[in-house]
Design a binder for these strands. Structure first.
Lengths: 190, 190
DNA sequence: AAAGGATGTTCACATAGATTAACAAAAAGC
DNA sequence: GCTTTTTGTTAATCTATGTGAACATCCTTT
C-alpha cells in the first residue's frame, strides 16, 4: 500500500490493519510517461487517480478546436473526469501527463466494493469532494469578480509549486486568457 | 418528516422506519419571508438547507460593492455557504429569499450526530456533493468556452423554471454580465 | 555545432462586453 | 386610480482582452 495515499487517507479517517489490506488489494499503482493520457475525451473514465508523483493537466477541446485547461494535478491531488467516472458515460475531458507520473487508481467496481466493505470510505470521499466543490465555487467567483491580472496573482500565490512546473501557455489557458495577454501581464509586473 | 425531503433522500439510499424517526428529530422546518436572509456574509453558516418551497439566491458583495449572484435554489435544491458550514468560519456568501421560502435545515452538530447514527447518510451526501461538483466544473468550462449569448441560451434551456421566477438583472449577474448587455442579447434573439 | 520544435514576447488592430445616462414599462404601495 | 419603486431597454462611448503575425529564446535531437 502506497504510503503517500495511506497517510493522506489517515488525515480524515482511521483504518484498521485489516481494512488497509482490503484497500490495498483494490488499488492499482501505475506509471505514465510524459505525454500519455490517463483519461481521453470520448472514452469512459475508468479510474479515480491519486497522484503519487508527477503532474497532469485536465483539458478539453472545444468546437473550434481550442484547448482549455480545466485543472492541474500534482502530488497528493486526485484527478479524473468525475462526471464520466460516476455515470460511466464518455468523458468530456482529457487528463494528460506533463511529466512521468505515478498514480494510485480506483476502478468504479473496486470503489463500490470498497464502499460496501469499508463504509468509512464514504465519509472519506464525502469530505474530499466537499472540499473540491468549495474550491470549485470559489474559482467561479474569482473568474467573475477579478481581472485577469488579479487571477494570475492569485494563482501564483495559491499554486506556486504548479506555476514552476508547467509552461506559461497552459497557465494562461487555465486562467481563461491567451498566452499573449498573460505575457503582457507578466511584463507589467516587472 | 417532510415528504419532499424524504422522497428525495429515498432516491439515493434506503432508510428504515426507525432511521426516518431519528432523522426527523434532527431536521428543523423553517419558513422565511421574501427578502429574509438564510445565510449572511461574515456570519457562520449554521445550516444546510433543503428548499421545500420558494426560491433563494446566493450572492456576495465584492470589494467595489457590486453584487454577484453565485447560484439560485428552488424546490428540491440544497443551499448554504458550504465552505463556511464545513469549517464553521464566517461565510463568504449571502443566501437571501426571493419569495416566501420553506426549508428543511440540518445544523452542523445534528449532521455529525446523524452521520454517526445513520452511516448511510455519508453515502447520500457524498453522492449529492459529487453531482454538485460535476455541475460546478461544467459551469467553469462553459464560462471559459462560451460567449455570453451562448451561456444565456444554455441557462434558459437548463433552468427554464428558474428563469420564469427571477428578475433579468439577477440572471445577468449569475451569467457574469451586465443587465444592459443581457437586454441587448434578448433583443437580438427576437 | 546545427537544425528543429517548443515556448515566450511584442505590437498593431479588432471585438465582446462594461459604463453611463436617459427613458419606458411594470409592479407595489397608498 | 395615482405615485413611487423596481425592473427592463436603448444608445454612445470606453476598456479589457482577443487575434494574427513576426520574432526571440530555449531545449532537444542529431
Amino acid at each position: 500500500m502506497n504510503t503517500n495515499l495511506l497517510s493522506y487517507i489517515k488525515r480524515y479517517i482511521n483504518l484498521t490493519e485489516q481494512e488497509i489490506t482490503v484497500l490495498s488489494e483494490h488499488v492499482k499503482i501505475r506509471t505514465y510517461l510524459k505525454g500519455q493520457y490517463i483519461v481521453q475525451q470520448g472514452e469512459v473514465c475508468k479510474y479515480e487517480s491519486f497522484v503519487i508523483s508527477g503532474c497532469a493537466k485536465t483539458f478539453f477541446i472545444d468546437t473550434e478546436g481550442n484547448e482549455h485547461v480545466v485543472m492541474f494535478a500534482i502530488e497528493n491531488w486526485w484527478t479524473a473526469d468525475l462526471g464520466s467516472f460516476i455515470t460511466q458515460e464518455p468523458a468530456d475531458y482529457n487528463v494528460q501527463c506533463l511529466e512521468k507520473t505515478t498514480v494510485a487508481q480506483f476502478s468504479h467496481e473496486s470503489l463500490e466494493l470498497l464502499y460496501a466493505q469499508i463504509p468509512q470510505l464514504e465519509r472519506f470521499f464525502r469530505i474530499i469532494i466537499q472540499k473540491a466543490y468549495v474550491a470549485s465555487q470559489k474559482r467561479i467567483v474569482r473568474n467573475f469578480s477579478l481581472t485577469a491580472k488579479e487571477r494570475y496573482l492569485n494563482f501564483r500565490k495559491q499554486y506556486r509549486d504548479i506555476e514552476q512546473r508547467v509552461p506559461q501557455y497552459l497557465i494562461a489557458s487555465y486562467l481563461g486568457i491567451t498566452k499573449q495577454f498573460l505575457s503582457k501581464i507578466r511584463a507589467e509586473l516587472i
